[in-house]
């Protein structure tokens, strides 16, 4: 249990720092921004209580906001994403082949299901964050362009992170 708390805290801080110190400064073609930090929300076990997940997600978003002068925007998007997580997850995984300590990942879900789950989560986040930022119907074109570009970039980066960081440990389980 202590180990879980420790690794969760470590992942939280590492992703937050990676986002605000590196990824916030990467903007491809003036449109695609990598949102690495939502990996934290994506990878939390399904058994985690929704209240706890909501709290952690809100704090994570707030942390990113404090560094990037977007007061509250990432916090709001993260909170909504956290609330959507279970719904999205169960639309790709059957309820009966689901165990209590289930953590979404390639090893546990298979690549196809995990990819669809990851992509949906990233897409929801990107649409949310740019809609909140622009907050007007006149900028719909802009929102769609930025959201889709960021979505593709973030998904690719997160798959890369997956194959680097977690594949070995999970296969052993």
């Amino acid at each position: 249990m202590n180990r879980t708390i420790f690794t969760t805290a470590l992942l939280f801080i590492a992703l937050l720092l990676l986002q605000v110190l590196v990824c916030n400064h990467i903007v491809l073609f003036g449109a695609a921004v990598p949102f690495i930090f939502i990996y934290f929300i994506v990878r939390q076990p399904i058994s985690m209580s929704t209240n706890l997940l909501l709290t952690l997600s809100f704090l994570l978003g707030l942390g990113v906001d404090l560094f990037s002068d977007t007061a509250g925007m990432n916090a709001l998007a993260c909170t909504v994403l956290a609330v959507c997580k279970k719904k999205v997850f169960f639309s790709f995984v059957q309820k009966d082949d689901f165990s209590v300590t289930f953590t979404p990942g390639i090893a546990s879900m298979g690549f196809g299901a995990y990819f669809r789950y990851l992509f949906s989560m990233v897409a929801i986040y990107c649409v949310l964050i740019f809609s909140i930022e622009y907050f007007s119907f006149s900028d719909v074109k802009e929102i769609i362009l930025k959201a889709s570009a960021s979505c593709v970039l973030t998904t690719a980066l997160l798959l890369a992170v997956d194959s680097l960081a977690f594949s070995k440990r999970e296969k052993r389980l």
Partner: peptide, 20 residues
Amino acid sequence: STWFVFLFYVLLSCVLIFSN
């Protein structure tokens, strides 16, 4: 409780966004 927690955080972030 989930809904209350959710609403609380949403309201808090909206306050941050719009009081900005």
